[in-house]
Simulated scan of single mutants.
Amino acid sequence: MAKQDISIRTEDGTAKAGLFHPSQRSTAGVILYMDAFGPRPALDAMAERLAGEGYLVLVPDLFYRFGDYGPLDAKTAFSVEPTRSVLRGMVEGTTQDMTRRDSAAFIAALTEAGATGRIGTVGYCMGGGRAIHAAAAYPDRVAAAASFHGGRLASDAPDSPHRHVATIKGRVYVGSAGVDGSFPPEQSALLAEALRRAEIDHIIENYVGMAHGWTVSDHGVYDERGAERHWKRLLTFFDETLR
Rank of each mutant, 00 (worst) to 15 (best):
L62M: 14
T76N: 08
Q187V: 13
K232P: 02
P82D: 09
D180S: 07
V174M: 10
K3M: 04
T10M: 03
E11Y: 05
I203C: 02
G178C: 11
V208P: 06
D223S: 04
P22G: 06
R229P: 04
E224L: 08
I168A: 13
V86I: 09
T215H: 05
V122I: 14
A143V: 07
L56W: 05
V30R: 08
P39A: 01
H133I: 03
T14L: 13
D44K: 00
H219I: 03
M210G: 04
L191D: 05
H202D: 06
P60N: 09
T14R: 09
W214K: 00
T27P: 13
M126D: 01
T236M: 06
E186A: 15
T215V: 04
Y69P: 08
R130T: 02
E92C: 01
A137K: 01
P158V: 05
E240V: 02
I8Q: 10
Y64I: 09
A189H: 15
A109Q: 12
A131K: 03
H133L: 05
F37P: 07
D223Q: 05
T14Y: 10
T76M: 09
R197W: 11
G209D: 04
L62K: 12
T167N: 04
R118E: 08
K3L: 00
S85V: 00
M126N: 07
E240R: 10
H162S: 11
P22S: 05
R196L: 07
L235C: 13
A166N: 12
I203K: 05
E112G: 15
L43F: 06
P161M: 06
A134G: 05
V80K: 11
A166K: 15
A105E: 08
V172Y: 09
R171Y: 08
K16C: 06
K16Y: 07
S26A: 10
L19V: 00
G128S: 11
S188E: 15
E224D: 12
K75G: 04
V142W: 09
L234P: 10
I132T: 02
R171C: 13
F106W: 04
E224Q: 08
A74Y: 00
Y138S: 10
A109V: 10
G209C: 08
I204Y: 13
A42H: 06
